[in-house]
């Protein structure tokens, strides 16, 4: 119990929880949003859609460690303003030097949201959006064309067809995508560890990194397991209702 008191009074763990909250929100909605747009584009039979479909899926085939390392090079800020690196160098050379920024070394924050998380979120969304797209694509392809044809006969616009017919049918897919993304985001370790570490003043720290350091670096097994239990509870909050609902619907079927 003392261990729990200890970690909750720890400023690093509080930052971790805020980071996880914001990371999860932006990561899930970023992936869903991008995923559905890509799915619709691929599904609309644009020329070369098949090739792009594969491209969008490729990031998922890479390990988080690999993408983390690459993104850490892309978002390395360099020394502003004279010596930009990575994406800052790109902005600089195409005349967008106003967009140059400290990226993941930034220590500014807004209502406990550390801006340094933005590059990490971009990296994570890039990696998992293709996966979300694949899920949505499966859903879209599963919608019988009779539905959409009937709607078209009734004079529904493309937007209405999507919003009133396709989206409701895709709801269970949105739901399972959210669950899968949520548990990935709550226990994310390798991407953050390879990309930024804990960051200055723990701006990009997450509970799993803290847990790992406490347990295996500092030999404090009790406190490390306290953090792990809290992570388990967080994941359980998402997973248990999902399991319950899927169990129920199976019964009904």
């Amino acid at each position: 119990m003392k261990n729990y008191e200890r970690i909750f009074s720890d400023s690093r763990f509080q930052t971790d929880l805020w980071n996880t909250l914001y990371f999860t929100i932006f990561f899930i909605f970023g992936c869903l949003f991008l995923g559905i747009i890509l799915a619709i584009l691929v599904d609309s039979k644009v020329k070369g859609a098949g090739i792009f479909q594969n491209f969008f899926l490729f990031p998922m085939a890479l390990a988080f460690v690999v993408t983390g390392t690459v993104w850490s090079w892309i978002f390395a800020p360099g020394i502003l303003p004279e010596n930009p690196e990575g994406i800052n160098l790109l902005f600089n050379s195409i005349g967008l030097s106003g967009l140059e920024w400290k990226w993941y070394t930034s220590t500014d924050s807004f209502i406990n949201f550390n801006f340094a998380l933005i590059p990490v979120i971009i990296g994570a969304v890039w990696q998992m959006a293709g996966y979300t797209m694949a899920m949505y694509l499966a859903g879209l392809r599963g919608i019988p064309s009779t539905f959409t044809e009937a709607a078209m006969v009734d004079g529904a616009s493309g937007w209405q067809i999507f919003w009133k017919i396709k989206f409701p049918i895709l709801k269970p897919i949105t739901f399972s995508a959210m669950i899968i993304l949520a548990h990935i985001s709550l226990k994310i370790f390798d991407l953050v560890y390879a990309m930024t570490g804990s960051g200055p003043n723990n701006v990009t720290d997450v509970p799993s990194i803290y847990m790992w350091e406490t347990t295996f670096r500092a030999n404090k097994y009790a406190r490390g397991s306290a953090i792990a239990i809290i992570m388990l509870l967080l994941v359980a909050i998402f997973i248990v209702p999902y399991l319950v609902s899927s169990f129920k619907s199976n019964k009904r079927a």
Partner: peptide, 19 residues
């Protein structure tokens, strides 16, 4: 010092560099 101290000190110094 024991490894527990090093980890804790790393944290403190890391925060101090920023704040």
């Amino acid at each position: 010092a024991p490894e527990g101290f090093i980890t804790a000190l790393n944290d403190v110094i890391n925060a101090y560099v920023t704040d």
